[in-house]
Design a binder for these strands. Structure first.
Lengths: 148, 148
DNA sequence: GTGAGTGCAAACGATTTGCACGGTG
DNA sequence: CACCGTGCAAATCGTTTGCACTCAC
């Protein structure tokens, strides 16, 4: 769409989604959420900032962090801590795990096949678990092949 | 080479363990590993530094990070990223998961009942997985009870 | 003796904070 | 109109780095 190019990214139903989640439909939130919806994958706060700024929608890093924090809190965006100072954000419907390659740093989605309940029931009594984040680490297929 | 030289902390067989792992048995390493062995639970680098310094064994933060990194690499210490800039270290034999309370920040060990293999086989082909880190988040039993 | 490992301080990068303004509801 | 959320820059925090020296082997 030409509208998207002129600085107005795909934002159609996003405003209602935000309001439905209890958040005001502000421009930064629409931009960030729209960006994550359009660009599937994992993005750092820095990446989001740079991409939107490059798209003619300058946002400050501080604001992006604030916006992302709000979206995560509202459940519209998922965050994965793939290491110290490496928070990656993504807009996804289904929760999944992440594999991080030690060599190239690539982050790969891993569908969740086994629920975490068995472990939880064994170890936690009376706790309310909102979320389970699973990070696998190792060498990805490409790096393993390259290393022999 | 007298093993009793490292002072009041329990250091008995630690030197041999370090050497067995391919690391030199230096004083900082003995102190850090000894501390983690004596104080079961999860400790930040800052905590380790403060505790050893308070015990009359001053170590620099930089050195502690270096030592911890070495111990983790040697497999003598486990590290859990419980959030951005929240690396917690512990000396433990068996790998386990972690539950982090959103309210009080408490970190609870969760025994590992189900292996992660099912998810991996579904999502990753050709990759070599060294490690799986699982972080549960929610409200711990105490905080859930306190909140009603 | 030799090199790994440490002490040390300073750099670094990710994330957070405080306050005043602007836009949303 | 009231208030939430943003712009902005600077502060904060955990972690890493570079170099000279020391100690374990």
């Amino acid at each position: 769409m030409d509208a998207a190019r002129a600085g107005r990214l795909r934002v159609d139903g996003l405003a209602d989604e935000l309001r439905g989640a209890g958040l005001r439909a502000t421009r930064p939130r629409l931009l960030v959420l729209g960006f994550l919806r359009e660009h599937h994958g994992h993005h750092s706060a820095e990446e989001v900032t740079a991409a939107l700024t490059a798209a003619g929608e300058p946002l400050l890093r501080g604001s992006v962090y604030s916006v992302l924090g709000g979206l995560v809190g509202a459940g519209l965006v998922l965050v994965a801590d793939t290491g110290p100072g490496r928070s990656l954000y993504e807009a996804s419907d289904a929760w999944h795990h992440h594999f991080v390659c030690r060599v190239c740093g690539a982050v790969v989605d891993v569908p969740c096949v086994v629920g975490a309940r068995p472990c939880l029931e064994a170890g936690l009594v009376g706790a309310e678990v909102d979320e389970a984040q699973v990070i696998f680490r190792g060498r990805c297929a490409a790096c393993a092949a390259a290393a022999g």
